[in-house]
């Protein structure tokens, strides 16, 4: 990375840390995920009320990471604001006058936002994991073994990429309200079960949040065609990467073409 590009990243980091919305959205993501994670863990501590079949199929990872589907909404709000506040405040002109190469400006902004999102995701996922295990008590799993570690890493990966997607979408739409109005229902409805409605599922299973749920083991028993999508965990990684690439390219094309 050239010195100029490095400076642009540092400047974007200054922008991110110098507005209050950053702290508020990231804190909200943490509180929602940890709080709901603990509550869900408590709920599943005693599963004697469930049928024998359900008890056998019970996966402690389900209550562990489910709360992230709520917490992600605050993370997405953070990511949208990183980009769209340039347009709502008019700062974009000062930004592009200071860094006239739009690719460099965009890359620096997305990189700084992604690093912050990744750090926030790591903290949120770790805290949520331990909060949920505290709630689960005797049914808790330890952060070891391929399956659990893969799910935790997958959760960090998903939360980071959903933020990158949000930044790309915000760069395309150049409006906080419009970006959130599209992203939040998409993520919320998806996780509320659109992915399990038979006809709709053939399409919605490829939405990014569905891929994220596969990564975090939130789609029900493995290999059960009634629930989860038709792809596995590596398929989910691929789907997320494709969505991210599409959003980033779309955002760049709009930024490059439009007058500031």
């Amino acid at each position: 990375m050239s010195a100029t590009a490095g400076r642009a990243v540092v400047a974007e980091w200054t922008k991110i840390r110098s507005v209050r919305s950053t702290a508020w959205t990231l804190l909200l993501a943490l509180v929602l995920s940890v709080g709901l994670g603990y509550a869900l863990g408590r709920t599943f501590r005693d599963i004697s009320g469930l049928s024998r079949e359900q008890q056998e199929a019970f996966d402690p990872l389900y209550p562990t990471f489910y709360s992230l589907m709520l917490g992600q909404l605050a993370l997405v709000a953070f990511a949208v604001l990183v980009v769209s506040s340039e347009y709502t405040s008019g700062t974009i002109r000062a930004s592009l006058a200071a860094v006239p190469w739009r690719g460099r400006f965009y890359g620096a902004k997305v990189l700084a936002g992604t690093l912050v999102a990744a750090a926030a995701a790591l903290v949120t996922v770790t805290a949520t994991f331990y909060a949920a295990q505290a709630g689960l008590g005797p049914r808790a799993v330890s952060l070891g073994g391929d399956r659990v570690v893969f799910a935790a890493v997958g959760a960090c990966f998903y939360l980071t990429l959903i933020c990158v997607i949000a930044m790309g979408v915000a760069a395309m739409l150049r409006s906080s309200a419009l970006s959130l109005a599209i992203l939040l229902p998409l993520l919320f409805l998806g996780s509320q079960g659109l992915g399990n409605v038979p006809k709709v599922k053939t399409v919605t299973q490829y939405l990014p949040d569905q891929a994220g749920m596969v990564l975090m083991h939130l789609t029900g028993p493995a290999d059960d065609p009634r629930f989860g999508p038709e792809y596995g965990q590596w398929g989910a990684v691929g789907i997320l990467v494709l969505w991210t690439a599409a959003a980033l390219v779309g955002g760049y094309l709009v930024l490059r073409r439009r007058d500031a």
Binding site: A3, T14, V19, R93
Partner: peptide
């Protein structure tokens, strides 16, 4: 350059607005 005056993020302090600008150009 000074284009429109309101091209500043309302939530950011004057100091930080100038700081990030300064950082972009070393």
């Amino acid at each position: 350059s000074l284009l429109e005056a309101k091209a500043v993020h309302g939530g950011r302090s004057a100091y930080h607005h100038l700081l990030w600008l300064a950082q972009t150009n070393g």
